[in-house]
């Protein structure tokens, strides 16, 4: 692009509308229609997490409506086998499912990053010990291991998160370790060591900030998986106990009333939209943080 063209563009800039400027400022991934829709859906769910119980038309636990009312005037999304309002339960359940998924992802990221940093930075026997243990956990089928752990701990939401945590940290450890191995050979890490950085300082200043981007991408992709895993455990009766409004256990309860389609479809749609929107956001973040991709 020549200098003249650049100047022309600058002169046009003030005439651009606000939405157009916001659009241009957004990360490239969000500038695709799919990314934008995903961001809006995810934002809506996060708002519902905060204010869900307030905007719910009914108490999610109150059994005050006719049982098995189909979606309509009495209840927008219908009622369940105990006469509870489905819409209110879904709104209240957002806090449980999404909140716990976020908690789970944060904890996995924390544990995985610490182990990955230690393994990658110190190498040798530290690396061998940590990574063989990681391989050991990865060798088990995820859901089975989580089920066994949850069953052993006893059914409760807290135990479900713990059980999910047992299986969800290894990918973080592996990703962080591989990034650290790449970073460790970088000249700026050497020159930090030459300037007398301790191992802790080197990790904090030179290594950790450079692992955050890819780790956050993995985390945002993982929120959907975490929501599925937690819902799955609840579906199997290993997570939320009645009457807690949790989406997975709502789907589970719907199985025994298969002809009342709304009981399963709406909580299922809630899970689907959360998982998909966070997946698209993860893709968008990956595109935005990938240094190889230039902003256009």
């Amino acid at each position: 692009m020549t200098r003249v063209e650049t100047q022309d563009r600058r002169q046009q800039a003030p005439r651009r509308s606000l939405t157009r400027r916001l659009w241009r400022a957004a990360p490239p991934g969000l500038r695709q229609p799919l990314g934008l829709v995903a961001a809006l859906v995810a934002a809506a769910w996060l708002v519902i997490c905060l204010i869900g119980p307030v905007i719910a038309p009914h108490d999610p636990l109150a059994q005050e409506l006719p049982r098995f009312t189909p979606p309509g005037e009495i209840a927008f999304l219908g009622t369940d086998e105990l006469g509870r309002d489905l819409l209110s339960r879904i709104l209240a359940g957002a806090r449980v499912t999404i909140g716990l998924s976020l908690l789970l992802v944060c904890l996995s990221m924390l544990i995985g990053s610490v182990l990955g940093l230690l393994a990658g930075f110190f190498g040798r026997w530290v690396d061998e010990t940590i990574m063989r243990f990681t391989d050991l956990v990865l060798a088990f089928p995820t859901v089975i291991l989580a089920m066994v752990t949850a069953a052993a701990l006893g059914a409760s939401l807290f135990n479900a998160v713990l059980a999910a945590l047992v299986v969800s940290w290894p990918p973080y450890a592996r990703v962080v370790r591989s990034i650290v191995l790449g970073l460790r050979g970088n000249d700026f890490v050497f020159s930090g060591r030459l300037l007398g950085f301790s191992a802790a300082r080197s990790i904090r200043v030179d290594i950790l900030p450079n692992t955050l981007g890819p780790t956050l991408v993995l985390a945002s992709l993982d929120i959907g998986t975490a929501a599925l895993l937690l819902s799955g455990l609840s579906f199997l009766g290993l997570g939320a106990k009645p009457p807690t409004p949790e989406w997975g256990s709502m789907v589970s309860a719907a199985v025994s009333h298969f002809d009342k389609w709304w009981l399963g479809v709406f909580p299922g749609l809630a899970i689907l939209t959360v998982v998909m929107s966070f997946n698209f956001i993860g893709d968008a973040l990956r595109d935005a943080l990938d240094p190889g991709v230039e902003r256009r």
Binding site: D187, G192, L194, G196, F197, P209, N210
Partner: peptide
Amino acid sequence: LGVGRRPLAQTGIQMVFQDPGSSLNPRR
């Protein structure tokens, strides 16, 4: 240089590296 901090007495030896792309921390 091992895992530990470089002895202070030896920090009088400094170096400028070859690759301008990686001689500085991109996030600071």
